[in-house]
Design a protein around this nucleic acid. Structure first.
Lengths: 213, 213
DNA sequence: ATACAATTGTGAAATTAATCACGACGTTTA
DNA sequence: TAAACGTCGTGATTAATTTCACAATTGTAT
């Protein structure tokens, strides 16, 4: 993997850049400077230039970046052509929000199936995604699903995780407050809504902002 | 503010620690070591000890930490007694998920009102939170609401943000893909579900995990 | 009482990330 | 054509965060 030298902090910003470049293109803009982009995505312009530079010289001095060229480049880099299949477990409100999200547009990921324990939801489709019973997990998941989105109640998290991992899932986006245990080759990203809110409040109280930052 | 020296990275982990300590207490445990805690929250034990050390010597060598003492300490530090009032804008699936979330238990935040543009939802209550029409934002929000959760469609984000800021909100948890512009004294935390998913996929492809990490 | 085991707190080192600042070079203007 | 300008790419610096590794201290067992 030749891109192993890209800092993780940079990698996390790539999808963000990608989306904004897309917006710019839709607005008909053909060129953009790191300064403009900086204002749009709220990332320091030097950081943006540095991020881009890991991929080579993508811009032109005195001109900026060509939107279309940059987009084409990112599309390849983010593997926008090769789609990763995703399964979503837990069709509650949060899960439903995900299913409605327009992931198909300009994206390298596709939720191809969803599972829930509630029989009322089984058989439905949301956003074009079929919903199966959780007992059918093993049966429906062929080996193609590489990522699982976990939007189940906390106490189910570990059990489902284990089943997902046994059926070939390599990455898990965990929205439950539970911290799950996985084999070392499985990647877990954890998003905890309550923690995000608490952290924001903590920052408000203890790190008051003034003119900058 | 005497806690200004606490690194932001540490501050972000505090709510997480707090929750797990709570769990431990409910399980009847009276002591815990940084090693145990490390396995539970998946944070290196040295990092945990370092984090705690910013608040002084909370543990005992050869023993670990007293759960109750630590909890009491965190309660104060995270201002668990002083509740911060929060308003939620946009009662779609994501917003509803938030309203159902059990924030009242052991928490320093409370969603006190929600707003939506859809007349069908107005007047309802979800999770004990009243839902008003978005036009009533100014009227219903007294000066006590300090945080806004933004779960509206992207294109509404900036407009609502401006209104929130004008009515005294100091922090915004932005779940829309839009990057919003605010005065410099307003704190914005941004959580972008699509970006999270894309980033995970990127990491899967470019940073394969092996035995550790 | 003594030795042993466990675990903290932290100085120092290592790693990772962000920012500054400027030379080089392409673009635009007249 | 030439001068003025804008913007990149990046070396160097600074800042932030994590990790190592161990002396000091406490609990526990005999």
């Amino acid at each position: 993997m030749d891109q192993n030298k890209i800092p993780q902090a940079t990698a996390k910003r790539l999808p963000l850049y990608y989306r904004f470049l897309n917006n710019l293109q839709h607005q008909g803009k053909t060129r953009v400077s790191s300064k403009e982009l900086s204002e749009a995505v709220k990332v320091d312009s030097a950081t943006i230039r540095r991020d881009f530079s890991y991929f080579g010289a993508l811009g032109k001095k005195g001109y900026g970046y060509n939107v279309e060229y940059l987009l084409g480049f990112f599309r390849k880099t983010l593997d926008q052509d090769e789609t990763t299949e995703v399964a979503l477990i837990g069709v509650g409100n949060l899960g439903t929000a995900f299913l409605h999200y327009n992931f198909t547009k300009n994206n390298n990921t596709k939720i191809v199936m969803a599972f829930d324990a509630n029989p009322q939801r089984i058989g439905d489709e949301i956003g074009g995604v079929p919903i199966y019973h959780i007992d059918e997990l093993e049966e429906k998941m062929n080996g193609n699903v590489r990522v699982g989105i976990l939007t189940v109640p906390s106490k189910e998290a570990q059990g489902i995780t284990t089943r997902l991992v046994e059926h070939g899932v390599e990455g898990i986006l965990n929205f439950t407050p539970a911290r799950i245990t996985v084999p070392s080759h499985i990647r877990v990203h954890h998003i905890d809504l309550a923690v995000e809110l608490q952290a924001l409040v903590y920052f408000l109280k203890h790190y008051p902002l003034s003119k900058s930052e």
